[in-house]
Amino acid sequence: MRTLKISTYLAADLETVKSYLMTPALLNYVVAGLMKFHPIEPNFFPSKWVEGKFSVKMFAFHFLPIGKQIIGIEFPQKSDHWVLRDNGSGSIAKTWDHLIFLESEGGGTRYTDEVSIDAGLFTLPIYIYAFIFYSYRQMRWRKLVNLNFRPLNDQLIE
């Protein structure tokens, strides 16, 4: 098991970041170009994340199938920050325990991804991939905030 923790500052208040984070459409937006998640069971994402298990197919670069994953949404109670947990697992990673921490910082939000990964012999390469994946996601988050969430808003309207 390996654990990765990566953080970034977002120039948006915590409630705004939390509101967009709770929108499943954001998931595919922040990984666009690198991955795509397609819901299997249920066969659609809810309009807002709720606690529960969501089975998805994963596609690298939007077209190359790389397995299935369970997104296990939970909302652990913390007193000093807000947390979303994806207690997931899949066909490659038996454990993909992803925590997203949101904390107010200055006039914006400190956004942190922390993921614990167990993929047996593939743990190290998956860990390296996770570093690239979460760095990319956070870059996409910063871009989205800098554009005042317009690309995601346009996508939600379509």
Rank of each mutant, 00 (worst) to 15 (best):
3 T>I: 05
4 L>D: 01
6 I>L: 14
7 S>E: 14
12 A>T: 09
13 D>A: 10
13 D>R: 14
14 L>M: 09
15 E>H: 13
16 T>K: 13
17 V>P: 08
20 Y>L: 07
24 P>R: 07
28 N>S: 03
29 Y>K: 14
34 L>K: 01
38 H>T: 13
38 H>W: 01
41 E>R: 04
41 E>Y: 04
42 P>V: 05
45 F>S: 01
53 K>V: 11
57 K>G: 12
59 F>P: 10
61 F>T: 07
65 P>T: 01
67 G>P: 07
68 K>Y: 01
68 K>A: 05
69 Q>E: 15
74 E>R: 14
76 P>V: 13
77 Q>F: 00
77 Q>D: 13
79 S>D: 15
85 R>W: 00
86 D>P: 04
87 N>I: 05
92 I>L: 15
95 T>A: 04
96 W>K: 06
98 H>W: 00
98 H>V: 02
100 I>C: 03
101 F>Y: 15
102 L>K: 09
103 E>V: 00
105 E>K: 12
109 T>F: 02
114 E>A: 09
115 V>I: 14
118 D>A: 12
119 A>M: 08
119 A>V: 07
119 A>G: 11
123 T>G: 06
125 P>I: 01
126 I>A: 14
129 Y>C: 08
130 A>R: 07
132 I>G: 01
136 Y>L: 10
136 Y>A: 10
136 Y>V: 08
139 M>N: 11
139 M>G: 08
139 M>Y: 10
139 M>K: 15
140 R>H: 09
140 R>Y: 05
140 R>N: 13
141 W>V: 12
145 V>W: 04
149 F>A: 06
150 R>I: 14
152 L>M: 06
155 Q>E: 13
155 Q>P: 02
158 E>D: 10
158 E>M: 09
158 E>S: 11
